[in-house]
Nucleic acid binder design. Sequence first.
DNA 1: GTACCATGCAAACGG
DNA 2: CGTTTGCATGGTACG
Length: 733
Amino acid sequence: MKGIEVDDGGDLHANDGVGLGDTGGCAGGTDTTGFDAMEDEAMGVGDGEIWLDRDPDDLLDVHDNSIFYGDFPPLPDFPCMSSSSSSSSAPAPVKSIACSSSSSSASSSSAASWAVLKSDAEVDEDKKNHRDHHDPVEVPPAALSSTASMEIPQEAPDQGLEDVDCINVMENFGYMDLLEPNDIWDPSSLFHMDDSHDFEAEQQPQQEQEQPKPQPELPPQQQDEEFMVQRNDEEGQRPSEDLAMVFFEWLKSNKESISPEDLRNIKLKRATIECAAKRLGGGKEGMKQLLKLILEWVQNHQLQKKRISETQISHFPYNYQDPYATQSPNPNPSPIPNINCNPIPPDPNPCFPSPHWLPQSPYMTDPSPVMAPPPFPPMVGYMGDPFANGPSNINSHPYQSTSEYHILDSTNTWQPSQFSLPSPYTSFPESNLPLAPAPQPPQAFAGYGNQFTYQYFPGNGERLTRLGSSATKEARKKRMARQRRVFSHHHRHHNHHNQQQQNPSPDQQARPAGNEGCNSAAQANQANWVFWPSAGAASNSPAGAPDAPQPQPPPPPPPAVDRQAGQAQNNPRQLAAERRQGWKPEKNLKFLLQKVLKQSDVGNLGRIVLPKKEAETHLPELEARDGITIPMEDIGTSRVWNMRYRFWPNNKSRMYLLENTGDFVRSNGLQEGDFIVLYSDVKCGKYMIRGVKVRQSGPKSESKRSGKSQRNQQTASPAGNGSTPSLSKRTTK
DNA sequence: GTACCATGCAAACGG
DNA sequence: CGTTTGCATGGTACG
């Protein structure tokens, strides 16, 4: 995971605490500047007022940028990051906010964006800034040089205050729901004035292409943030410009893209308007500013809608409402047209492509419609389903027919953690999908398309009163820099960590095809324990259980198991067990095989006999009996064990073994009756191993039994041979 | 009868 | 002599 995660409380933080803490958090923040506090609050997830339709495609753009670039590209490539201002990463102050990966991704977007923008040079600068981040004045403009080609305040410092006020109003107004959800999550898009010309240089052509607007006299507000700022400045000096003119100009400029219907759909409460206008200067000027803001938003949103629709039609294969939608890598993130940078939340963990769907309704907190795992047939007979009480029907085992589909696809995987599950899964950052604040009923504008209805809450009044805070643009930049720094550090740290974890040994020979560099090891890092009720589950009792006649080998709850493979993911019991244990199904782990450990497997020989069929099916084909060395990443510890996969000739056939397993077994405390599971990370191309301890609450009885006695006791269980039922499917060699 | 596999066990190896 | 390596044996499930 290279990003930010939102913990149970909905707090956004990177592994190392991205930015938010620095910024004083949101509600509970300690920001000293009113503006900071206000921003943070405004941007807090708890404020998640704005939940407009959001296209996952938008997410993908920056997402990809943020994730797949090892080295952060130069700023011009990521215009949207530019002034990802400040507050975006304000943590969700609302405890009740359920976290979903999607929103968490969104929440982390800004940080990621900053990270993307972050140059090493800036890091130092940021460090410096960080030390005195409470003093906005001391923020060296250079710290944001890469993103601040439009440092208007610097050009006109004298005007700064007024300009800033205006800008702040805009920003905060944007925070207050005139902008899209993504803007909420990443205010960078709000602070257009910070966006560089580079951005515009890149964006403008596309924008024009996507939305050709014959606007010779077009007020630049929709296209050019700089113009926007300047215009605001100018307008501050030209009060004669009245609302009608503003509106008229805007209409002229947007006649191509804004329909009367769009305008009619704009609904604002009077109180909102009045308050906002007041904060925007009051009187006519304030109204004018407010109008501009609204129009800007409408335009932006309209443009986005158009873009989104185009994008979806053209190449987006899925509807973002589809929880199983396949992530589109979108290798060429297209710049977001117009002012809205639409920072895409980075995927905190490339190995876990966060679903790029977002609830359409901001109020949709019940994830069940999309959380529900795909309907699976009864798990009985599923290979490796530890909870299958009945004997596995090997012959009809779907695994046999589905083994070809082990490559996990996000389209048919589901992640409970994506939704509003309070995450007990905190033992390992990577193991936790970023939890994002669940959509919250907006406090302010609940945007649906162009229609947003302002819902006035007491907090808004306070916010509005704070619009005129003394916060400066520098403060915002500083905050942004801090967050970028934190994220950048976090990002690098994790890269380093991943590299260490995955540093292959020279003799690592076998590796499933796939991407390198993603850390899937820790994603499922959990205590590999499975507890089996001793009563009424004889067939589920672990091997060696005192009263278990013969245990049905319980397959481990895999962190990410091919649903096709059954892997008990569809078993409520296992699912619950997984949740209790922190296991979360992930997308990119393909179940290969499992093996209930025999005494000989956990003995001092350091070798584990592997089920022949599965070994031959899912592990590299062995030409020589010496086999190959396979680095097996321990899911539990992220440690990589170089195990040798080999075979013995045996009765005109082969016996497949995994050698050098002694340390692994010992480190995991595995005993007879426990089991191991092998996975391959389809994305990272790694083999992963997981040792699962199966213990009943009571002390395990004498587990040492002769193989013969075990055999005798296993007669009741087709899977009694300790391997997957499919083992019984004979494959003559 | 055959395949699978748990494990016994002898040979090889090494301190 | 202890450990490791490699093969062989035999029980079990299944066709």
